[in-house]
Design a protein around this nucleic acid. Structure first.
Length: 626
RNA sequence: GCCCACGUAGUUCAGUGGUAGAACACUCCCUUGGUAAGGGAGAGGUCGAGAGUUCAAUUCUCUCCGUGGGCACCA
C-alpha cells in the first residue's frame, strides 16, 4: 500500500501538461465591439449630463464586458435612474450622430479644454502635455457632446444597436485610481454587438452566480460566518472541514514526497519578533492590535508584554532556522506548516471566504543557496502543477509580480536594494523561461522582500484573485540575521522561497466550490456515498453495507428519514452527493447495489464488492471523475 | 476606509404608519414507497440594533452593526 502511495506521487509529478489560460484576451481597439463600447460610454455621458447638468467628467473606457464612465455628479444617481438614462441613450443613438474628431496642438488643446469647463479632463491634459512624444490632443464630438479622447469610435451612432447594452451598477471610484483623490461616481454598463450577445452574456452570468461559493457554502453547509464571532472569521462546518482535511492531506503527501519537513508553531508571538525581523512597519496596518499583559518583575517593577496574533508564519519559521548554527550541507531546508494567520483586513475588503481576517495557509519556507534557487523554485512550480492537474484547474494565468521603484503610492513598499531585486528577478525569470511556462510580468505587485509568481484566478463574479503564490525572498535573511556556514567557511545568507500552492484553505476552497459548482470529485466530497432504501425493511442490509464501507474510511450515510422514496432521491441529489446507492428486494437478494452517480439519471447494478473496489480506487487516485 | 444598494421565520422571499404572511426545511400523525416535492396538523419572527418624528414605527429620519457589488487595499 505504501508503495502505491509513493508510486502515485512520483507519477503525478512527471510531465508538463500545465496549460494555464492567458490573461483576459487583449483588447483590440480597432474591433467593432471596442468601438461600440467606447462610443456608448460617450453616449451615456451625454445622457447623464442631460439629467444632471453641471456634472463633471472623469474617464469612460471600455471594459471586458462593457464600459463605464466616471462623474462628479451635480446630484446623486441611483439605480432608479438607470431606466431613464438608458431611454435617453436610445434616443441619442436614434439621432444618427456622427462621431468625428479634431486634433489640437498642445497649447490650443489646453485652452480648449479650459473652455469646456472640465477640471478633471484639464488636469489630465496638463499631464499629457508634459509627456514626451505628445504633440497634440484629440477631441471627439458626437452631436452636442465633446470629449477629450483618443478614440477610436464608430463613425455613426446608427451602427450601435439600441438594445445591446444595459446599465447595471453604480459605484464609487477614486479619481485616477488613487484613494488620496476625490471619489467619483462610476456608472457601469454591459455592452455587446447585439441584443442576442447581451442576453447570452446575462444568462451565462446568472448561471455562473448559482455557483457562487457564498451561496453554495450555505446551501451545502460548508461554512458559516457569525457576526457575533466576527466579520471575516468563518466557522467551518463538518462538510467544509472534510474538504479542508482532504486537501491538507494531499498537500502533506506532496510535500513529504518533495522532502519538506513539517513544523508546528504558535499563532501568537511577542512583538519583539516583528521588530527583529522588520516585518512590523510593512504590516502594521493589517495586524490585529496586540494583547497587552502586565507582570511584575522580582524587583517589583511592572513590565508590559505585548503579544500579537501573527499575520504571517515566516518569522516563526525563520526562528526555527536560526535555532542552531546551520551548514550549507543542510540546504535546501524546507519547513512546512499549514499555519493559521490573522490579518485585520479593511472592512470593505472582507468578502465570503475570499478575503477573511483569520485563515489557514498552506505555507512553507525553503532556505537555500543562490545556486539552488532555480531548482527549488521549479520544484515548487511542479507541485503547483500536480495540485492543479489533480483538481482540473485550468482557467488561471501566472503573474510574474515584480517591484516598481517608481511606484509613487508605495515608496516604502519594497526593500531598498536595487541590486538584490535585479538578481532575484533574473533568477525567477530564468527559471520560468527555462521551464517554458507562460507568464505575464506585472510591475508593482511584488512582495516587499522579493519577486513572485502569483496564480491568478477569476471568481464566478469575474473578480480576479491570487489563489497560489511562489515567492523568492532575497533580503529578509540578511535583515533577520539568518546565516549558514558555506563550504568556503564563510557565512552566507540563504535565499528564502515562500510558497503556498494551495494558498489558504479559505480562498482555495472558495475557488474549488465555484470550480466544481459544489459537485466535488469523490475524494473531496463531504459525503461520498448515500444509501437509500426503497423500504424500511431493507435498512438492515443498508446498515451492513454502511459498516463495511466505514471500515474502509469511506464517508457514507444511510438515509433513515421518513420522507418518501422520491423525496429522498431529490434531497440527496440536491446535496450533490456523488454516489447514491439504492437498495431494495433485488439488491438484497443478489448482494448487489444500484448505483446512481451525481449528474446522471441512469443507474447501474453491480455487486457490492465491485462497487467497494471501484470507489476505493477512485478515492485513492484522487480521480476527477469515475 | 470610501461610494451605492440591501437587512422580515432555519432558507428563499412577499407585505404594511394601526406590532406580520407564503413556500421549502423542522416536529407530530397518516402513508411503506423503485428514481427530483404523498396527505394532514403543529411549532417557529423584539421585522439587524439603538435613538428620533408620531396618538401609534417593522414601515418615515438619523446613527451603529452586518451583507452584496464597486473603488482603494491585498505581506
Amino acid at each position: 500500500m505504501w508503495g502505491d502511495v509513493l508510486k502515485h506521487l512520483s507519477k503525478s509529478c512527471d510531465g508538463v501538461n500545465f496549460v494555464p489560460m492567458p490573461k483576459t484576451p487583449q483588447r483590440d481597439v480597432d474591433s467593432p465591439l471596442y468601438k461600440i463600447r467606447h462610443s456608448l460610454a460617450h453616449v451615456m455621458a451625454q445622457a447623464v449630463l442631460q439629467i444632471r447638468p453641471g456634472s463633471k467628467l472623469g474617464f469612460g473606457p471600455p471594459v471586458d464586458d462593457g464600459f463605464y464612465y466616471d462623474f462628479i455628479l451635480s446630484s446623486p444617481i441611483t439605480e432608479e435612474d438607470f431606466k431613464d438614462i438608458e431611454k435617453r441613450m436610445k434616443k441619442i443613438l436614434a439621432q444618427n450622430q456622427t462621431f468625428s474628431y479634431r486634433d489640437f496642438p498642445l497649447e490650443k488643446a489646453l485652452e480648449h479644454i479650459e473652455q469646456m469647463g472640465e477640471p478633471y479632463k484639464a488636469q489630465y491634459a496638463g499631464e499629457l502635455a508634459k509627456r514626451e512624444g505628445i504633440e497634440s490632443i484629440r477631441f471627439y464630438q458626437n452631436g452636442p457632446f465633446e470629449d477629450m479622447c483618443e478614440g477610436p469610435h464608430v463613425e455613426n451612432s446608427k451602427e450601435i444597436p439600441k438594445d445591446c447594452f444595459k446599465i447595471h451598477s453604480v459605484a464609487g471610484a477614486y479619481w485616477r485610481g488613487d484613494h488620496r483623490h476625490v471619489m467619483m461616481t462610476r456608472l457601469y454598463a454591459w455592452a455587446f454587438e447585439s441584443r442576442a450577445d447581451l442576453k447570452a452574456y446575462m444568462d451565462k452570468r446568472e448561471e455562473a452566480l448559482k455557483r457562487d461559493h457564498k451561496k453554495l457554502g450555505k446551501d451545502l453547509d460548508i461554512f458559516h460566518i457569525d457576526e457575533t464571532v466576527g466579520k471575516g472569521l468563518p466557522l467551518w462546518l463538518p462538510n467544509g472541514t472534510v474538504i479542508r482535511d482532504q486537501l491538507e492531506a494531499f498537500m502533506k503527501e506532496l510535500e513529504f514526497a518533495d522532502g519538506y519537513r513539517r513544523v508546528a508553531t504558535p499563532h501568537i508571538t511577542k512583538g519583539d519578533l516583528y521588530y527583529q525581523t522588520g516585518h512590523l512597519p510593512y504590516y502594521k496596518d493589517a495586524i490585529f492590535p496586540p494583547m497587552e499583559l502586565m507582570r511584575e518583575s522580582e524587583s517589583g517593577e511592572r513590565i508590559k508584554e505585548s503579544y500579537y496574533l501573527r499575520p504571517m508564519n515566516c518569522p516563526h519559521h525563520h526562528k526555527i532556522f536560526s535555532s542552531r548554527p546551520r551548514s550549507y550541507r543542510e540546504l535546501p531546508l524546507r519547513l512546512a506548516e499549514y499555519g493559521h494567520v490573522y490579518r485585520y483586513e479593511e472592512s470593505g475588503a472582507v468578502s465570503g471566504l475570499l478575503r477573511v481576517r483569520g485563515m489557514c495557509m498552506n505555507d512553507a519556507h525553503i532556505y537555500c543557496t543562490k545556486e539552488q534557487v532555480k531548482d527549488e523554485f521549479l520544484g515548487v512550480m511542479r507541485m503547483h502543477q500536480t495540485l492543479y492537474d489533480t483538481l482540473g484547474l485550468k482557467d488561471y494565468y501566472m503573474r510574474f509580480s515584480t517591484w516598481d521603484p517608481e511606484d509613487s503610492k508605495g515608496k516604502d513598499k519594497y526593500m531598498d536594494d536595487p541590486e538584490g531585486w535585479e538578481t532575484a528577478q533574473n533568477l525567477v525569470r530564468e527559471a520560468m523561461e527555462e521551464s517554458g511556462l507562460p507568464f505575464e510580468e506585472q510591475r508593482g505587485e511584488a512582495a516587499f522582500y522579493g519577486p513572485k509568481i502569483d496564480f491568478q484566478y477569476q471568481t464566478v463574479t469575474g473578480r480576479e484573485e491570487t489563489i497560489s503564490t511562489n515567492q523568492l525572498d532575497f533580503g529578509v535573511a540578511a535583515k533577520v540575521g539568518l546565516v549558514y556556514k558555506a563550504a568556503s567557511g564563510e557565512e552566507g545568507h540563504p535565499y528564502i522561497i515562500h510558497r503556498a500552492p494551495a494558498g489558504t484553505h479559505e480562498r482555495f476552497v472558495a475557488f474549488l466550490i465555484e470550480h466544481f459548482g459544489g459537485a466535488f470529485p469523490l475524494w473531496l466530497a463531504p459525503v461520498q456515498v448515500k444509501i437509500i432504501c426503497v423500504a424500511d425493511k431493507y435498512e438492515e442490509y443498508g446498515r451492513k453495507l454502511l459498516d463495511e464501507m466505514r471500515a474502509w474510511f469511506i464517508r457514507v450515510e444511510l438515509d433513515t428519514t421518513e420522507a418518501s422514496f422520491n423525496k429522498k432521491i431529490r434531497l440527496n441529489i440536491k446535496r450533490k452527493i456523488p454516489c447514491l446507492l439504492i437498495l431494495g428486494e433485488r439488491e438484497m437478494e443478489k448482494k448487489e447495489v444500484s448505483l446512481r452517480r451525481y449528474g446522471s439519471k441512469d443507474q447501474t447494478s453491480l455487486s457490492f464488492s465491485t462497487f467497494l473496489d471501484l470507489v476505493s480506487e477512485e478515492i485513492r487516485t484522487r480521480a476527477l471523475a469515475p
